Simulated assay, not measured.
Amino acid sequence: MRRSSTARTGRIAGPLSTALLTTLTLALAVGLLTTTVGAGVAQAAAYRYWGYFQWKDGAWTLASVGPASVTPADGAVEGWRFAVSPENSAPRVPRAAGDFGQICGSTPAQAGHKRVALVVDAGLAADAPSGESAPKPRGACAVVDPKATSAQVVAAVAEVREQKGIICAIDSFPSTGCGDPVDKVPAVPSPEPTVQLVLPAAATPSPTATARNAADQRPDGATPSAASDSDGDSFPILPVLAVVLVIVLVAGGVAVRRHRAAEQDS
Results as ranks from 00 to 15, higher is better:
residue 72 P to E: 11
residue 94 P to G: 07
residue 31 G to P: 02
residue 168 C to V: 09
residue 49 Y to K: 13
residue 52 Y to Q: 03
residue 53 F to L: 11
residue 7 A to I: 13
residue 33 L to W: 03
residue 88 N to H: 08
residue 56 K to E: 13
residue 5 S to E: 12
residue 91 P to E: 07
residue 9 T to V: 06
residue 235 F to W: 14
residue 167 I to P: 00
residue 154 V to G: 02
residue 132 E to C: 06
residue 242 A to C: 02
residue 28 L to C: 05
residue 21 L to N: 02
residue 166 I to F: 13
residue 82 F to P: 05
residue 127 D to E: 08
residue 99 D to C: 09
residue 222 A to W: 05
residue 154 V to S: 04
residue 181 P to W: 06
residue 239 P to I: 04
residue 117 A to S: 13
residue 196 Q to W: 00
residue 225 S to I: 07
residue 263 E to Y: 05
residue 224 P to W: 14
residue 180 D to W: 00
residue 190 S to D: 14
residue 117 A to I: 08
residue 195 V to W: 01
residue 178 C to W: 07
residue 130 S to V: 14
residue 197 L to E: 09
residue 229 D to N: 03
residue 98 G to N: 05
residue 256 V to M: 02
residue 212 R to M: 11
residue 18 T to R: 15
residue 70 V to Y: 00
residue 254 V to T: 15
residue 42 A to I: 01
residue 200 P to A: 03
residue 170 I to V: 12
residue 164 K to C: 07
residue 172 S to D: 09
residue 210 T to P: 05
residue 216 D to Q: 12
residue 47 Y to S: 06
residue 254 V to Y: 14
residue 202 A to L: 03
residue 15 P to L: 08
residue 214 A to W: 13
residue 255 A to F: 00
residue 72 P to I: 11
residue 3 R to S: 12
residue 169 A to H: 03
residue 40 G to Q: 02
residue 58 G to N: 08
residue 92 R to F: 01
residue 45 A to C: 02
residue 53 F to D: 10
residue 239 P to L: 08
residue 186 P to M: 13
residue 216 D to G: 15
residue 99 D to V: 07
residue 37 V to F: 15
residue 71 T to C: 00
residue 183 D to W: 04
residue 4 S to M: 10
residue 25 T to R: 07
residue 218 R to P: 02
residue 92 R to T: 15
residue 136 K to S: 13
residue 254 V to E: 12
residue 136 K to A: 14
residue 156 A to T: 02
residue 46 A to R: 06
residue 73 A to I: 05
residue 36 T to K: 02
residue 257 R to V: 11
residue 34 T to S: 13
residue 249 L to A: 15
residue 202 A to W: 05
residue 62 L to C: 03
residue 49 Y to R: 14
residue 186 P to R: 12
residue 1 M to P: 04
residue 206 S to D: 02
residue 68 A to F: 01
residue 220 D to Y: 04
residue 25 T to Q: 07
residue 40 G to D: 04
residue 139 G to F: 00
residue 25 T to N: 04
residue 66 G to C: 00
residue 255 A to Y: 03
residue 184 K to G: 11
residue 54 Q to Y: 12
residue 56 K to D: 12
residue 186 P to Q: 15
residue 68 A to S: 10
residue 119 V to E: 05
residue 162 E to I: 01
residue 101 G to R: 05
residue 190 S to A: 15
residue 171 D to R: 06
residue 220 D to K: 07
residue 245 L to I: 04
residue 30 V to D: 10
residue 227 A to Y: 15
residue 37 V to R: 15
residue 29 A to L: 14
residue 150 S to W: 12
residue 157 V to C: 11
residue 25 T to A: 12
residue 148 A to Y: 03
residue 76 A to E: 10
residue 216 D to M: 13
residue 28 L to S: 08
residue 110 Q to F: 02
residue 69 S to R: 15
residue 201 A to G: 11
residue 38 G to N: 11
residue 74 D to G: 15
residue 102 Q to E: 15
residue 107 T to E: 13
residue 124 L to M: 04
residue 184 K to V: 15
residue 96 A to L: 01
residue 111 A to Y: 05
residue 213 N to W: 09
residue 93 V to K: 08
residue 60 W to K: 00
residue 75 G to Y: 02
residue 51 G to C: 10
residue 49 Y to A: 14
residue 230 S to D: 14
residue 72 P to Q: 14
residue 54 Q to R: 14
residue 38 G to M: 10
residue 123 G to Y: 07
residue 198 V to N: 04
